[in-house]
């Protein structure tokens, strides 16, 4: 009885420590972004910081297992409010939906083609180098 309760408490503390790490990294990203001479998304700096700490072994992958599985699994939910906000831009959307769709569609096709061919050319060059 006490054993399972102890386990539950340890589990809860792990989640708290994970949340603290993520919150501190998120804030640190904002601080670093504010000090940069150019505009850069603070969230991407936080991502770099965490990646660095993982590679240096300062933070263990297991040390973030609860929160990472939760956030990664339900990631899209956190962007629902940004999507709902579109109703505030109904006029803009109704006047430019055609351009939005056209630009998105054309650029998507070009991007797909460019990425695929860049990989294939790189692979071919690497093979030729290996053969030579």
């Amino acid at each position: 009885m006490t054993l399972s309760r102890d386990k539950a408490i340890i589990g809860a503390m792990e989640i708290l420590s994970e949340l603290i790490i993520i919150a501190l990294l998120s804030i640190a990203g904002g601080v670093i972004a504010a000090m940069l001479p150019f505009a850069f998304p603070p969230a991407v700096i936080s991502l770099f910081l965490l990646l660095l700490l993982l590679f240096l072994g300062i933070i263990k992958e297991d040390g973030l297992s609860s929160s990472s599985s939760f956030f990664l699994k339900y990631m899209a939910m956190f962007f629902v409010p940004s999507g709902v906000e579109i109703i505030e831009y109904a006029d803009l959307l109704s006047s430019s939906w055609f351009h939005i769709i056209l630009i998105s569609a054309i650029s998507m096709l070009i991007t797909f083609f460019a990425a695929a061919k860049a990989v294939e050319i790189t692979e071919r060059l690497m093979q030729r180098r290996k053969a030579a």
């Binding site: 993520i22 998120s26 969230a43 936080s46 973030l64 929160s67 956190f78």
Partner: peptide
């Protein structure tokens, strides 16, 4: 909910 934008992006590092 939107406040979690930054933490969610940070967690991408794990994946």
């Amino acid at each position: 909910i939107g406040m979690f934008l930054t933490p969610v992006t940070t967690i991408l590092a794990v994946s």
